[in-house]
């Protein structure tokens, strides 16, 4: 029993919870934005994989880390545009198109990676984002090391969750996006073009998913390998429902899911050999 209490009381576990939650937060925000505009984006798993690969590849070829995140966002946006073309313009089944985008984006990412990065014994690495201590707050006992010594993208993800919650709930733009999702005909009568709203939401949402994937390779870890996203995209799809389509609740949902993932890494390290994100 004592060890369990020790583990739960360690700042390391709670720091890991935030770290593990970051890609889930970013992916879920992207998925919430898409779904609020009326498009289910099952491309998320592949878009995260592609973002993880392309962001890492940019940094590996000499770009700085923020450029890497930007490249991942653009890569996500391109696949978002493809999904929007299939589902909004052509009106094809969102489920099947999304799966098609996932299969295409992930296999394309693996193909490009294998082509440009030769197979070697130890995978090539980059210098990832380093933790930033927030002055003052990081000196607090327990809370400081757990929550205020994270890398920059983690802080950014939390800020984005709050920003997206505000935009969706309180601004005319957010209202227009929600109208396009709830009742496109009424939106059109109000002078809002639902097609434009859906395109915008899917492209921006997919860019967020790409950044979420890139967090894995640029901050949590320092190299890319196939299957590293490991179903995180699908977890995000579940989180959207869990958070009842609200960005601020997505934040807490992601933390809860991340807590259970972190616990499984801590309590059963032997079973969780691919515990990618370090927890101590």
């Amino acid at each position: 029993m004592n060890t369990i209490v020790d583990i739960l009381a360690s700042a390391g576990l709670w720091g890991a919870v935030l770290r593990i939650a970051t890609p889930l937060i970013l992916g879920t925000l992207g998925a919430v934005l898409c779904e609020r505009s009326g498009v289910l984006n099952l491309g998320i798993e592949g878009i995260m994989t592609f973002g993880a690969m392309v962001g890492w590849l940019a940094v590996f070829n000499g770009a700085d880390l923020w450029t890497g995140l930007l490249v991942a966002a653009l890569g996500g946006a391109v696949f978002g545009a493809l999904h929007a073309l299939l589902t909004v313009t052509l009106g094809l089944s969102q489920h099947v198109s999304g799966l098609g985008v996932t299969l295409f984006a992930s296999s394309f990412a693996y193909y490009v990676f294998r082509l440009l990065v030769p197979v070697s014994g130890s995978p090539p690495t980059i210098e990832p984002f380093q933790p930033i201590s927030i002055p003052g707050l990081s000196d607090l006992p327990f809370i400081g090391p757990a929550f205020f010594t994270q890398t920059a993208p983690t802080y950014m993800a939390i800020a984005l969750a709050i920003l997206l919650a505000y935009i969706l709930a309180k601004t005319p733009l957010g209202l227009a996006v929600r109208m396009a999702g709830e009742n496109p005909h009424a939106a059109e009568a109000q002078g809002v073009n639902p097609m434009v709203m859906r395109y915008g939401a899917v492209i921006v949402g997919s860019a967020l998913m790409g950044v979420g994937g890139a967090f894995l390779t640029l901050s949590a870890f320092n190299s890319f390998f196939p299957t590293m996203v490991q179903g995180r995209g699908w977890i995000c799809i579940a989180l959207v429902v869990f958070a009842s389509w609200r960005p601020e609740r997505a934040l807490f949902g992601a933390l809860l899911f991340a807590f259970s993932m972190a616990s499984s890494c801590v309590f059963r390290p032997r079973l969780m050999a691919p515990c990618l994100i370090r927890y101590s």
Binding site: V96, G100, F104, S107, Y111
Partner: peptide, 23 residues
Amino acid sequence: GIPTYIADVTVALSLISMLVAVF
């Protein structure tokens, strides 16, 4: 020396192009 992932790419692309073709 072309990565085998090209097969996955082709299969995924044929799904997408099939959707468009049926449309």
